[in-house]
Amino acid sequence: MGLREKLESGGFALTAEMAPPKGVNTSRFRECARGVKGRVDAVNVTDFQSAVVRISSLGAAIMLLEEGIEPVMQLTGRDRNRIAIQGELLAAGALGIKNILALTGDHPVFGDNRQAKPVFELDSVNILQIATLLMEGKDLAGNPLDGAPDFYLGASVTPLFNPLELQVLKMEKKIAAGAKFFQTQAVYDIEVLRRFREKTAHLDAKVLVGVIPLKSPGMANYMNKNVPGIFVPEGVIERLRNSENKVQEGLRIAAEFIMQAKEEKLCDGVHIMAIGAEENVPILLDMCGF
């Protein structure tokens, strides 16, 4: 069963995120992918995440297909204009990549090639719009395609956003443009998720809540300070501080959060972002009993 079927049949979906390799040595990437094969419904491959040069998301998605894993190909507007975005989507469609996650993209200022010219011709809503048009058999300019792709479109959302009304407004636009599922920024406070669920109850889309297992109190403090949309409550940081094996404790915290979100029906699945510690994903899945 693929991601779409899982979500549409009302199942609890699991996705994990992986950054494509920086360089042509793909062994670790493939190894980590194999580690979650059969245990998650799909694996996201990021699109030059944080504006860092690596293998493209299309390339990494093809490697996942080769490994027999269903990819979620992330696609941002940072580096490509409408011609390149449409070409990338058509290539994905032709190669059998179904799931597309449209994002605006991090600004090049955060990356490792900071002199780059930012493109941002299309935002996430426009990318969804264009993918929907391609599925209808035409390009953005209205020209006919010889064979239309079939996508399951997704987007991101930040449950902890001030003002939340503005975030929900954009989420509504993404749904109108074709998004069927959302993967959220990482959430640590179940209250944030409850509030978000309440404010988005009227929306017809599946939500996979983002989970980043913590590795140390330092990591939590760093994210609280620097990563927009992420807030780790003091109680969680305290637990990490008092534990002997912090990585293990971080995974336990994540597992408890996932189980609670699932039990309270606050989401339709989870999206695990291990950022560099992909080998821990199977351990987390074990803890959750998935």
Partner: peptide, 20 residues
């Protein structure tokens, strides 16, 4: 808007400030 967005804020907006 540092990204010239037309459909609302990116995920980098925080406390009314721009991520860039």
């Amino acid at each position: 808007c540092a990204k010239g967005l037309l459909n609302g804020p990116c995920g980098g907006s925080r406390d009314g400030k721009c991520e860039v």
